[in-house]
Nucleic acid binder design. Structure first.
Length: 839
RNA sequence: GCCGGCGUGAUGAAAUUGGUAGACAUGCCAGACUCAAAAUCUGGUGGUGGCAACACCGUCUCGGUUCGAGUCCGAGCGCCGGCACCA
């Protein structure tokens, strides 16, 4: 760090600490970043995921935001009317934990952090329109979060139910299924294993949108996100089949293999299945009750661990298989989950691994009803594993002999005709649990009335505000519950004394619509101003981390679709293009964390090198989509580059005005021509790379252009000793270089632009257009291969024709030697690229 | 088990449609400037052999297609991420 600090400090002139705040203030004063509706211009809503105000901006924020900013700036120079807003996802646990630990109010903690982070964010020199800032913990904001909730409730998209839910004992609150991570079932926030609790909680019916959420047409998002969301939603096609118990109760099951129905030799219910108690015979009751009790006590980790020995108990009851009226025993076992399908299965041990293991463990019949081709005839008594492969149906009553490719469809049709079953699609995704037993969140606007039940707070009474005076007790219940007065209110419907809901909402609820609040953060006639909505929505580009794939990114799509169906929004999707950046890791490859002490402080980097260097380095040093370990040394490259650009511009100034040296003559003319060509080639590549989010090559092309100008300059100096930079073409190239640098290093570009007497602001200049003719090479290097191996190169005129290229290639001594006097059998000529001589 | 992604110098990484592998940088080596160092500038830098011209090898491995493969196809290995007793 110490050695790097000296680089920019000692360079004469270029002092980022002086120029950066100067321009930031000027841009702000001039409202350069204000985004206003302008029907005459193409709009572009560029959105970056908003930060949680944890206290300090870290390098990850810079990595996510400054390349995004560069691209937003690029688009503005391309002529788009760009809106680039910023805000804070300000509700959440850390504030409350700080309150408990340090006795500071969450509100105070949060807003102090926001002030601090806003200051830090400004040092990035990003083009955020701060007048569109929104903070989710402001009552003016969460009024509308509540408004959405009430709407969802009115449209039956929110409901309350008593259920076994995931509870984090460390965060002291329930969490959504999406917020439980991995096989170990850890809390997404704090890595504590979650436990099950039976609670009355609020859910949003995201499952109603499962099918639509699987369709990604018309949105340009990474395939990876589609895969993650598709996995998460977990669609399964199969059939719903109604069995009957001997007593006549319907026993519903879902199966993906209706073609194996004739092989069902027993049934299995989840221990929690509502029919268990009624079905169990007196003889089996004690055993069944003991098993149910044991299953209830177990955690999901134990219960859902694959590969574990199967256990279960016979209920004493029998079911009737509707396809053949066969009587089969009903068991209970914890490998069947109450939360998926119907909580009951038909067991086909011959064709399902789990059922097979269970059947062998308890001596139940295994009956093959599918015979895959090319496999020896299956024998239920001797087979050692289930046969999953599809095959022709055997031993299946009227459908015996149905070939593999028709087995499922014909069975489903057959079931339908008899009213026994129908095709069904089942999803793994669950409804979104939004209740949180915490204080620092958006209150759920519901009043519980003894007579009227759960009554939504009327729109005109919103927001239901959080009380400031609150005590924290780590009880696992909402602190709001212990407030002396807050929860007592009158039922909005009947006026009787009633109690407020004391749980608050999942903060993902707040962030599901923040892009709408940015449209008009001060609007109070609705969550957003419809005029702003019509102009700006949908979001054109969205950038942020892929870790939100099955949480925020899924929730926000759901929210949008629900809003559309409720008449609040329009269009199929909220965000058209999504790009994910990777993560900056510590230099040892581990995740950066304050507790590990391996973080990189962006403020310090800015103090040492300036924001422009940090921005440029973060773009240059990584594939943006990948990220990687922090490497402090590599920033030297961009620091040096910026210094060279600065020095170059000083020499251009010294050389005088635009016409100081005209266009040059003689040897200089060629050098000027080289510079111009490099410039137009750079425009082509930089433009392409900005479009593709390839920021590392954006910067490397800009460096290359700088190097090309410097190389021509020193060649001229070595020749005639004149200053090449005085030529109009070179001066224009330098201006073009600055223009293309403007999105990457906005302060330096603006400063040097001004120093060259150009009109303020460089950020309002049009993006340069490449002239194909000027970009064209007049000399090209042809690679000459013999039998596909490079044996030489020739410099030729760009317009060379094939016979000429061929004879030039064959004339090379090394080529002659490699050919060894043999006659060419074939010559492949790729114009502008190579000549391959096959002998 | 299923579904994604990735694998290139000492390091970060480049490489339109298959067409000079390693652009642009970092680091390192040498030189210039300096009393010296830093900074800056110049040159070199994939491996092996050779004074050199040059040759051979080289993009995780093996095989294939092709005049030509980092890129396409097949099989495999390794790492990372997601899902998973999901019927």
């Amino acid at each position: 760090m110490e050695t790097q600090a000296t680089i920019s400090e000692r360079r004469e002139g270029y002092d980022p600490a002086a120029i950066e705040p100067k321009w930031q203030q000027r841009w702000e004063r001039d409202g350069l970043h204000r985004a206003r509706i302008d029907p005459e211009r193409r709009k572009h809503y560029f959105l970056t995921m908003l930060p949680y105000p944890s206290g300090d901006l870290h390098i990850g924020h810079w990595y996510a935001m400054t390349p995004s900013d560069a691209r937003a700036r690029y688009l503005r120079m391309q002529g788009y009317n760009v809106m680039y807003p910023m805000g804070f996802d300000a509700f959440g646990l850390p504030a409350e934990n700080a309150a408990i630990k340090r006795n500071i109010h969450p509100k105070e903690w949060t807003y102090a952090n926001i002030d601090r982070m806003r200051r830090q964010l400004r040092t990035m020199g990003a083009m955020w329109d701060w007048q569109r800032e929104a903070t989710s913990s402001d009552p003016e904001y969460y009024r509308w979060t509540q408004w959405f909730f009430v709407k969802l409730l009115a449209h039956d998209l929110a409901y309350r139910k008593h259920a076994a839910v995931d509870f984090c004992p460390n965060c002291n609150t329930t969490v959504a299924r999406e917020q439980v991570v991995g096989e170990a079932r850890l809390c997404e926030r704090c890595d504590t294993p979650v436990i099950k609790r039976d609670l009355n909680q609020w859910f949003l019916r995201i499952t109603r949108y499962a099918e639509e959420l699987l369709r990604f047409e018309g949105i340009d998002w990474p395939e990876r996100i589609f895969a993650l969301q598709t996995n998460w939603i977990g669609r399964s096609e199969g059939a719903h089949v109604t069995f009957r118990t001997e007593q006549g109760d319907a026993l519903e099951v879902f199966t993906t293999r209706p073609d194996t129905l004739w092989g069902a030799t027993f049934m299995v219910l989840a221990p929690e299945h509502p029919l268990v108690a009624g079905l169990t015979t007196d003889g089996q009751r004690a055993e069944v009750e003991a098993y149910v009790a044991a299953a209830t006590r177990q955690t999901d980790i134990d219960r859902e661990a694959a590969g574990r020995d199967k256990t279960g108990v016979f209920t004493g009851a029998y079911a009737v298989n509707p396809v053949n009226d066969e009587k089969i025993p009903i068991w209970i076992a914890d490998y069947v989950l109450m939360t998926y399908g119907t909580g009951a299965i038909m067991a086909v041990p011959a064709h399902d691994e789990r059922d097979f293991a269970f059947a062998r463990a308890y001596g139940l019949t295994v009956r093959p009803v599918i015979q895959p081709s090319g496999m020896a005839p299956l024998d239920g008594d001797t087979m050692t594993e289930a046969v999953i492969a599809k095959g022709a149906m055997i031993d299946s009553g009227p459908l015996t002999g149905t070939p593999a490719d028709e087995a499922v469809s014909r069975t489903v049709a057959w079931l339908g005709e008899r009213g026994i079953g129908r095709a069904e699609v089942v999803y793994r995704m669950r409804d979104w649990l939004i209740s949180r037993q915490r204080y620092w969140g958006c209150p759920i606007p519901v009043v519980h009335c003894a007579r009227c039940g759960a009554v939504p707070v009327p729109e005109e009474q919103l927001p239901v505000e959080l009380p400031d005076d609150i005590e924290w007790r780590p009880t696992g219940e909402s602190p709001l519950k212990f407030h002396p007065t807050w929860r007592h209110t009158a039922c909005p419907k009947c006026g009787a004394a009633a109690e407020r809901e004391t749980d608050t909402m999942d903060t993902f609820m707040c962030s599901s619509w923040y892009h709408l609040r940015y449209l008009s953060p001060d609007y109070d006639g609705g969550p957003f101003d419809p005029d702003e909505y019509r102009y700006w929505m949908p979001v054109d580009t969205y950038t942020g981390g892929a870790e939100h794939a099955t949480m925020h990114l899924l929730y926000t799509r759901f929210f949008h679709k629900a809003n559309r169906d409720m008449g609040v929004e329009t269009g199929p999707e909220p965000m058209l293009q999504l790009r994910n950046q990777g993560q900056i890791l510590a230099s040892d490859g581990a995740r950066m964390s304050k507790s590990r002490g391996n973080t990189t402080d962006p403020d310090e980097l800015v103090a040492n090198h300036g924001a422009d260097a940090v921005r440029a380095f973060l773009m240059f040093g990584y594939r943006w989509s990948e990220g990687g370990p922090w490497n402090a040394g590599n920033i030297h490259g961009v620091v040096r580059w910026l210094g060279r650009v600065w020095d170059l511009v000083q020499r251009v100034r010294e050389a005088g005005g635009p016409d100081a040296n005209g266009d040059g003559a003689g040897g200089d003319a060629k050098l000027v021509r080289d510079v111009v060509r490099s410039t137009h080639q750079a425009i082509q590549r930089v433009t392409h790379d900005f479009e593709e989010f390839e920021f590392n090559t954006v910067v490397s092309e800009l460096m290359k252009l700088t190097n090309a100008i410097l190389a021509s300059e020193s060649a001229a100096a070595a020749g005639a000793g004149r200053a090449l930079v005085g030529h109009r073409g070179v001066r224009e190239s330098v201006l073009t270089l600055l223009t293309m640098m403007a999105p990457v290093t906005p302060h330096l570009a603006e400063e040097l632009w001004a120093q060259l007497g150009q009109p303020y602001s460089i950020h309002q200049q049009p993006w340069p257009e490449a002239d194909t003719a000027l970009a064209a090479d007049d000399l090209i290097t042809l690679v000459v291969q013999v039998n596909g191996k490079v044996r030489g190169k020739v410099e030729v005129a760009a317009g060379i024709d094939e016979p000429e290229a061929r004879s030039r290639a064959l004339a090379l001594p090394n080529v002659e030697r490699a050919a060894g006097g043999r006659e060419p059998r074939r010559v492949i000529y790729v114009p502008g690229r190579l000549v391959n001589i096959v002998v």
